[in-house]
Nucleic acid binder design. Structure first.
Length: 418
DNA sequence: TCTGGGGTCCTAGGACCC
DNA sequence: TCTGGGGTCCTAGGACCC
């Protein structure tokens, strides 16, 4: 029987900021989403003060000031880099690792399990803290769903921050007090339906009939029931290339003009294409959307999206960009207060053509893209870009309170005074 | 004035085929 | 009275995750 761990970074974005700014220790801290929209990460102190997850910043600005909460814009460059450090520290510890999100990873051990696994995992937790500065909680269990629950207990109720839920005697006691809505894969709608069926706790769900759940709900719920019973049904996912790549952003201020939307879409398309080339894929279809604010009243609200298949798969920014521009022209309606736009590159396939040598005599058609990517890798993000992306970008999102790029820019290295 | 962004998976329903 | 039926493939949309 395999065995799983879920490693979860505690208040990840806040923890990243604290590594480079020790003054933030033991003080209430909060991190805002893109565009300084809402709260997406809170320190324990902020949680105790009653700052909710997802709180819109403009509504809580005075609350945040009154309570002395230190607030930052998201710095995804920093968080991404710190995430890599944590993951590379975890990687050697097990037989297989799945990076589940920027701040979570599943580890899996095959039979025969290493002796003293619990102690090894405790040591791993200390190592991550020492090498990266990031505190983590770890849940241990025979299935991924149980490991998620165990990590939750580890974070909230257990001072060592490592919890093993595989002992049958205490397992039911724990599951009985664990709300069904907090089980991995159960959210709003499903939780409500389960409660209507008399299923309130994780233990109730564990004791329900999987076939019945499949008949009356879905195969997803059946799997959860089996997982709660210790039968592993959710496999480790490979780290294969993405099947879709999306880039979408809210604007820093409302946008009315087609020309500005075109510029934004050109920018987003070029960034998505760059990401796609990095994983060596080609797009077969492209989806574009523009939207007004979700919170705008009915008559003024507008959402339009369009998906178009490409005649041949491509990773060339200018080809994709031409197509995206045509699509924007088709869905644009004047006199609307646009707040957001986005693009998704769909049905990605692997590019089997070998990467062209930059110094080869014969020029390949996509050489331009490779040269651009190379220059940006070597000399810094955005050193070279397509004219259509614009130079002023007045629609660009806000991030007024962002911390420095401590780990990815030589100029922002922390200096230590003796 | 101001309420995030990026994914995957499942299902239902239509088109099409024999 | 009777007006097949089952299979596959594709797509859009919804649910759910962090």
């Amino acid at each position: 029987m395999p065995f799983f761990a879920l490693v979860d970074c505690n208040n990840f974005y806040v923890s990243c900021e604290r590594v480079f700014n020790p003054q933030l220790q033991h003080r209430p801290v909060a991190i805002l989403s893109n565009n300084d929209g809402c709260v997406v990460s809170r320190s324990e102190e902020s949680k105790k003060l009653g700052l909710p997850m997802g709180a819109p910043y403009f509504k809580y600005e005075s609350f945040i000031r009154q309570n002395g909460i230190m607030v930052f814009s998201s710095n995804y460059t920093l968080y991404g880099d710190m995430s890599n450090r944590v993951m590379e520290t975890l990687r050697p510890a097990s037989d297989m690792m799945e990076i589940y999100s920027i701040d979570e990873a599943f580890l899996r051990w095959n039979d025969p399990l290493p002796p003293n696994l619990f102690d090894q995992v405790c040591a791993l937790r200390r190592r991550v803290k020492q090498w990266t500065g990031i505190p983590v909680s770890i849940g241990l269990a025979p299935t991924k769903t149980l490991a998620k629950i165990a990590a939750n207990i580890a974070k909230n109720q257990c001072h060592e921050s490592v919890f093993d839920i595989s002992k049958p005697t205490q397992q039911n006691k724990v599951l009985a007090t664990f709300k069904v809505d907090d089980v991995w894969g159960v959210s709003d709608g499903l939780g409500k339906r389960l409660r209507e069926m008399g299923v309130y706790s994780a233990l109730d769900l564990k004791n329900s009939d999987p076939a019945f759940m499949r008949r009356h709900l879905t195969v997803v719920v059946e799997r959860i029931v089996r997982e709660l019973n210790g039968q592993s049904c959710i496999p480790m996912e490979g780290i294969g290339p993405r099947r879709n790549i999306m880039y979408s952003r809210s604007f820093g201020r409302p946008v009315y003009q087609l020309s500005e939307l075109q510029q934004a879409i050109a920018d987003y398309t070029s960034r998505a294409a760059q990401k796609m080339r990095r994983q060596g894929s080609l797009a077969q279809a492209i989806h574009v959307f523009i939207a007004t604010s979700r919170h705008q009243d009915g008559a003024n609200r507008y959402y339009a999206g369009l998906t178009v298949g490409l005649s041949s798969a491509t990773d060339n920014s200018s080809n994709l960009l031409k197509q995206a521009q045509r699509m924007i022209n088709d869905i644009f309606k004047p006199n609307r207060r646009y707040q957001k736009a986005g693009i998704t590159l769909l049905n990605l396939t692997q590019n089997t053509q070998p990467a062209a040598n930059l110094f080869a005599d014969s020029a390949k058609p996509d050489q331009l893209m490779q040269v651009m990517d190379q220059i940006n890798r070597q000399f810094g993000h955005d050193k070279i870009f397509l004219a259509a992306q614009g130079t002023t970008r007045p629609w660009q999102m806000r991030c007024k309170m962002r911390s420095p790029f401590y780990t990815t820019n030589w100029d922002k290295l922390v200096t230590v005074k003796a």
